[in-house]
Amino acid sequence: MLEFLQRLKFPLPQASTFAPKVDLLYDFIFYSSVFLFIPTIVAMIYFGWKYRTKPNDNREVPYIDGHHTFEWFISAFVGVIFFIIFVWGLIGFNELHNPPAGTYEIGVVGKQWMWEFNYSNGKTTRNELYLPKGIPVKLVMSSPDVLHSFYVVNFRVKQDVVPGMYTTLWFQADQLGEHDIFCAEYCGTAHSNMLAKAIVLEPEQFKAWLQGSDPNQLTQLEIGKKIFNTRNCVACHSVTGVQTQAGPTVKGLFNRKVNLSDGTQVVANEDYIRTSIINPATHVVKGFRPIMPAFQGLLSENDISAVIAYIKSLKE
């Protein structure tokens, strides 16, 4: 039966663990719809033709103004079908919403009009997302400008990328090769050119690629600077020594004594900076409010080290 369903479908590769499940549900809805549609339309055309009027038609039409049992039966019948569709869809949605433990995280930045992918070791690619086959991957996505939406048809996944917040998406690719990535939320002039490729490699190949030397490989300091700018740290923490309302400057911060809002004083060493990034509420600098978002889980250890290296370099 399943095989029969598969043969009738349009050929769309099923390249993630979600894809066959989504397609099966799609088929169920499709055939339920056909099952509801055909009798309705056949009845309409049959009644229309069988009872068509002719010249000098003297038939007496019956007076049928409804039928309670019939109405309730139809309501219950379609209600049950709709409910099955809903519950089935919910099960799939649940899975999409709850990534398993131990996913491999990749940072995604969607901006007008390109995709940028940041890997845990500081490696960055543009419009090419390398993925390990058979390993669940979680994307942590953000946008500096407008709404975008990350859409891989062959994986049957989609998630909007929203400025001002992080959205996440997980999947497990299990078909080697290249798959199209589209931007599915309208974002301006080159919306239809905001394309990328998901390139699925065997896990060993992926590892080799990740560690392989890259002519564009940045130094740790450059990576840190880049993160400091792209993650918008610089919006609140100036690197020039200027104090903003939102946060203290990081120029000359390293090894300086800092007064905290709870009255204590600490030395701004590596550990202090690290804690302040992943959980800013631990140390709040006197005169400022706890408004910084926590970056726990959003930056890898390598990223954090790179940021710290960058802050260290900003001497007075």
Binding site: K21, F86, G89
Partner: peptide, 11 residues
């Protein structure tokens, strides 16, 4: 109906 079913709707 394809849109009330969350998993398919996402696609």
């Amino acid at each position: 109906l394809f849109h009330i079913s969350l998993a398919v709707s996402v696609h």
